[in-house]
């Protein structure tokens, strides 16, 4: 099986490192971007199987990144699963808007890397 590729856009160093470490150990290929601009560029330049997207990001918020990738007429990443990973309690409008374009919406404080991997596996098999 070819290793699944994952783009992790996460500005918290500890959290980012934790996810990258666990995902790599589980056999995934992971690119990690810390700011929103780099994250959007990476998502456009390479086709990933999964994008883990934070909401509160420097330079460009997760909402804008998702909107740039999927908000237009054409879905720029039709073969990618997007998982929103945030600790920020958004207002309902924004959350619903993001959920519409994403495959999962998870609160980071409520999941562990193990749980994240099980969500990824679940989505790959779906």
């Amino acid at each position: 099986m070819i290793a699944k590729t994952i783009l992790c856009i996460e500005d918290d160093r500890f959290i980012g490192e934790m996810y990258v470490r666990s995902l790599k150990k589980a056999g995934y290929e992971v690119d990690w971007m810390v700011d929103g601009n780099d994250g959007l560029i990476a998502a456009r330049n390479k086709q990933y199987d999964f994008i883990l997207l934070d909401v509160m990001l420097p330079e460009r918020r997760g909402t804008e990144i998702l909107d740039a990738l999927r908000g237009g007429k054409e879905d720029l990443i039709p073969h990618t699963h997007v998982i929103i990973l945030t600790n920020f309690e958004q207002d309902d409008e924004s959350r619903l808007a993001m959920q519409k374009h994403a495959d999962a919406y998870l609160i980071k404080a409520e999941i562990t890397p193990k749980k994240l991997i099980s969500v990824i596996q679940h989505l790959s098999n779906a």
């Binding site: 500890f14 959290i15 934790m18 980071k108 562990t112």
Partner: peptide, 9 residues
């Protein structure tokens, strides 16, 4: 929630 994520993880 940030630190909790790391501790829990």
């Amino acid at each position: 929630r940030g630190p909790i994520t790391v501790i829990k993880g």
